[in-house]
């Protein structure tokens, strides 16, 4: 599954902020850490503020912090602010009335269901608590 850029930036932001609950982080702090565009990130953070997952404080010492419930907010909750990956009600698409089209559509549906169940089963707290298990699987640098 490929998430769009805004969704990835939102996940980076929420998880980084939730991992530093005592600190306010600026958009630049987050952008620098993940090597992403701070201009684009600001728009994403604005959406997260509107969704009440992130709070912002202006001025010196200000910045953003996670204000959601880390035990309850799941990766799916964050993803869904930026893209609709919920399974649509079953409605016919082109060629679904053919045997091949119908079978292909159901296989894609099966994959979507697994994706949604996985994202919905991982809370922010679980992610932060278990992310070290993935350490061995870091992609090797090509440099």
């Amino acid at each position: 599954m490929k998430l769009n850029k805004a969704t990835r930036f939102a996940l980076f932001s929420v998880l980084e902020l939730a991992n530093n609950p005592e600190h306010h982080l600026s958009a630049t702090d987050i952008a620098n850490k993940f090597d992403i565009s701070s201009h684009h990130l600001l728009k994403v953070l604005h959406s997260l503020v509107r969704a009440r997952l992130v709070g912002s404080v202006r001025g010196a010492g200000g910045g953003y912090r996670f204000i959601g419930n880390p035990k309850r907010i799941t990766l799916l909750d964050i993803v869904e602010i930026f893209e609709d990956i919920r399974l649509p009600p079953v409605e016919a698409e082109a060629a679904d009335d053919t045997e091949i089209g119908n079978a292909l559509s159901q296989i894609m549906h099966e994959i979507d269901e697994i994706t949604i169940a996985t994202l919905n089963s991982i809370s922010v707290e679980t992610f932060l608590k278990t992310m070290h298990f993935y350490q061995d699987d870091l992609p090797k640098s090509t440099n």
Binding site: T74, A117, T118, N120, S121, I122, S123, T126, T130, Y134
Partner: peptide
């Protein structure tokens, strides 16, 4: 079950993964 959110979340919180 994929729909068993309670147990899916529990086992994930224990570090289990696909």
């Amino acid at each position: 079950a994929r729909s068993d959110h309670l147990n899916m979340s529990f086992f994930r919180s224990q570090g289990m993964r696909g």
